[in-house]
């Protein structure tokens, strides 16, 4: 059956602030779901607490708006209990990386087959403007009036630290890339992390402007595609090469650089060395990477639980509790 985005919309009025990046994310997610083609009744969207976590209410799928930080654990339970469901987890930088940090690293380590959308606006919105675990050092917010004195998490680095096998990034205003990575996340088997750089129009407006602004985006970002040369720039004449163990930007035609010198993106390698180098680029010296940065194969937790159980259960599918007890040490009273 063919689906359209409408099939994944609920009848609820969307309550995010006008101009919030979340509007684009929910619309894109609905389009991505239509493209993937899993029917709405076989999808569960699980969220925690925060602005972004309101998202399930706007979806025409099954949904569960849970408690702060715990969406990863709840989604793990949903998927393990019923691997036939496609499970999306919607979370923000506070929900996922502060209060929910433990569940986040463990769902990735276990490689539960979930699609995690991490909306990163580097601020707490719903509590009205405190710094988050992704706020840059020195960020001045309501709870850091003199600037923060702590370094942020970089979601990709944390994902790889937890041995993650899928990481993609997009920017809220770049709808095409956003949909592309959501579809890729859905198709990847295992815990897929999609970081969406998202703008909070009220408390952290233009925080991603340096890379998101249309005027500079082509020069400050690189859209990675599996099997393709790592090229970027308005004229696609800049590329990435390895210089020792570091990445370096080169210009084709300058200093004898040819297209052949440019790295080809391989998202599938088990070794995540280059994926990490790519994910750590921030748009300044090196362009910020968007698209699928890593998508490597690995066994999924929920499938392994199911496989192990079927293997054991198939030895005697009709075994009951009473059968078990009667096979143990017993005595009879007549």
């Amino acid at each position: 059956m063919e689906y359209t985005a409408k099939d994944f919309k609920s009848d609820q009025y969307v309550r995010w602030c006008p101009g919030c990046g979340d509007h684009a994310v929910v619309n894109t997610l609905q389009k991505a779901m239509a493209e993937v083609g899993i029917p709405p009744h076989k999808i569960a969207v699980i969220s925690g607490i925060g602005c972004s976590s309101r998202l399930p209410y706007y979806m025409g799928t099954y949904g569960f708006h849970t408690i702060h930080g715990r969406s990863g654990a709840i989604a793990t339970g949903v998927k393990t209990a019923n691997p036939d469901l496609t499970v999306w987890q919607i979370t923000g930088d506070g929900d996922c990386l502060a209060i929910g940090g433990n569940h986040f690293i463990h769902e990735i380590r276990r490689n539960v087959n979930l699609n995690i959308i991490l909306l990163n606006n580097k601020i707490y919105g719903l509590t009205k403007g405190q710094y988050s675990p992704t706020s840059d050092r020195g960020a001045v917010t309501k709870s850091s009036p003199y600037g923060t004195v702590e370094d942020p998490f970089i979601p990709a680095e944390l994902t790889f630290g937890a041995r993650g096998n899928f990481f993609a990034r997009s920017i809220d205003v770049d709808l095409v890339t956003a949909k592309e990575v959501m579809v890729a996340a859905a198709k990847h088997k295992g815990a897929s992390v999609v970081e969406v750089l998202q703008n909070c129009v009220i408390f952290n407006d233009q925080i991603h402007k340096y890379v998101a602004d249309k005027e500079f985006r082509a020069e400050r970002t690189i859209h990675l595609k599996h099997g393709e040369k790592m090229l970027f720039g308005k004229d696609m004449d800049k590329g990435l090469v390895l210089d020792g163990l570091n990445l370096k930007v080169v210009k084709i035609g300058e200093n004898g650089v040819t297209l052949d010198d440019i790295l080809v993106h391989d998202e599938t390698t088990q070794d995540n060395f280059l994926h990490l180098r790519l994910a750590m680029m921030d748009g300044h010296e090196l362009p910020l990477a968007v698209g699928v940065i890593r998508s490597a194969e690995a066994p999924c937790y929920d499938e392994e639980v199911k496989r192990q159980m079927e293997e054991i259960r198939n030895k005697r599918p009709d075994k009951t509790l009473r059968d078990l007890l009667l096979s143990e040490e017993t005595w009879e009273v007549k």
């Binding site: 569960a44 699980i46 569960f64 849970t66 408690i67 715990r70 654990a73 709840i74 989604a75 793990t76 339970g77 949903v78 998927k79 393990t80 209990a81 019923n82 469901l85 433990n102 569940h103 463990h106 639980v305």
Partner: peptide
């Protein structure tokens, strides 16, 4: 599921209950 902590223990159970 041997969860990562007590909270995840109950939360995975809540997820499993939601899933039937």
């Amino acid at each position: 599921v041997q969860a990562e902590d007590e909270i995840a223990g109950v939360c995975t159970a809540i997820g499993a209950s939601f899933a039937g």
